[in-house]
Design a protein around this nucleic acid. Structure first.
Lengths: 208, 208
DNA sequence: GTATCATGACCAACCAGTCAGTCATTATCA
DNA sequence: TGATAATGACTGACTGGTTGGTCATGATAC
């Protein structure tokens, strides 16, 4: 029977895991998964390489854990839930602003997910099924109740939702990662407003 | 004086380079740049590793060449040029269809570009400056002449264009790479129509 | 004393890139 | 015509370096 209570040991163990996972998230976003050695992660965390293997079986196990820890699903679901009692116009503008801030605050994770997507296609597909398909369906259902049925007949709401998320992601990437802001500075408000308006009315709506 | 004319030897040389570049494009799209060894590329092309280095200085030089060979800029410019004398509605629908087909026929290149984007940030930024910024500007200029000035004041046309391209890219990725078609089959026409309509009028336009 | 945590030298595997040498074809010349 | 020399595409063993993962040993706390 150990002198140190199990709960305390477990807490320390979990803290170390968290620390290593956080360091890995940071380094992977900077240099990529393959380009970041286990030794580098351990060094950055201030421990020896061997110590790393006390907390994670393999490097891949760490990746799995990092992705699990940072699952975006709960946040997305909360974001969608907040829309319930608002007008379509309000809801879309609110969702876009919330999603944008969400992207900004999870910059590292977005970069890693994007980079590892093609290399870990199976896992990416599974995650897409688990996270994006249901979130997409929720949003599409929400729209179905608010959008003119004739319009909903004409265009695909599921593709529309996927397009909205795609706009957000790609504008975020060009702006924050590729440094598009250097060529043509655009404010956060201008970006989220434009995306929401495009989704709601497209480029043709006359000013009210 | 050699019997084999220089032109013929050069043609052979160029054919080998092309062959190696094609093989690399395929393997990189499947497994990624880092995960594909030079030996694997040579093997797939049916030559020895040493032979590879007769045609390319380094592995990175091959990447550069592959990207140069497959530059998307000319096609994009042509696509934009074809819009000149058409109505906005027609032009947007035509552009989206053309761009979609273009994505489909350059699936491998899109995958590689996306995958290597975070790892080769400098090069990605340079390519973004060279290709996407001018293409974006062209499209935005085109829109400026056709869109209600009041609307163009309200939303950012540059962000709109970037959003349109983002929609295309992300829907393409979810559909073709993540296999979204398995959950909810959508036809190519339905996809391109929805994206174009979303860009033109958003989700709210009533049927005419 | 012993249970826990930590270490870093070590190993096998892999990789980009090199280089000395092979071989079929072609050119030159007797 | 036949012997010899030159060419250049091709080869694969090899090098220097890096990596993921192991393990015998040490440190610390109780």
């Amino acid at each position: 029977m150990p002198k140190i209570p199990a709960s305390e040991r477990d807490a320390f163990y979990e803290a170390r895991r968290t620390q290593l996972a956080d360091v890995a998230l940071k380094l992977w976003a900077e240099q990529g998964f393959d380009q970041t050695s286990v030794a580098a992660i351990a060094r950055e965390a201030g421990v020896a390489k061997g110590t790393f293997y006390l907390y994670f079986e393999t490097k891949d196990a760490l990746l799995e854990d990092v992705l699990r820890r940072n699952s975006l699903l709960p946040n997305i679901l909360k974001l969608i839930d907040d829309l319930r009692d608002r007008s379509l116009e309000d809801a879309v503008h609110g969702f876009v602003r919330g999603a944008w801030r969400h992207l900004c605050s999870h910059r590292d994770l977005v970069l890693i997910a994007l980079r590892e997507l093609p290399t870990h296609l199976d896992e990416a597909q599974r995650m897409f099924e688990r996270v994006m398909v249901p979130a997409n369906a929720l949003l599409a259902d929400y729209l179905k109740e608010r959008v003119d049925p004739a319009r909903a007949e004409e265009i695909s709401l599921v593709i529309s939702v996927r397009g909205l998320l795609g706009m957000l992601l790609s504008v975020f990437l060009t702006q924050e990662v590729l440094g598009a802001g250097r060529f043509l500075p655009v404010s956060e408000d201008e970006i989220t407003f434009t995306i929401a308006e495009l989704f709601l009315h497209g480029v043709t709506r006359p000013t009210s």
